[in-house]
């Protein structure tokens, strides 16, 4: 199945800012955030986009 233009995951350090359908990964610090985002990016063939310093989304284009 091909997925196009979908948010595959949300990675954040701020639990207050996110909720909803996509899988959400909570991280404690910036380093962990980068690490998780890089891994999910590679695994899902998506692109990690930064919405803010503490929130990344992985989008399949």
């Amino acid at each position: 199945m091909m997925i196009e233009k979908a948010i595959l995951a949300v990675i954040t350090m701020n639990r207050q800012k996110v909720s909803g359908g996509a899988p959400i990964f909570f991280c404690d610090n910036k380093k962990e955030l980068e690490y998780v985002a890089a891994n999910i990016e590679a695994i899902t063939d998506g692109i990690a986009h930064a919405l803010s310093e503490e929130m990344f989304i992985i989008v399949k284009h």
Binding site: E34, A37, A38, E41, I47, A48, H49, A50, F56, I57
Partner: peptide
Amino acid sequence: IMNIGLEER
């Protein structure tokens, strides 16, 4: 051009 999140990228 586009939004790139990861510092390494």
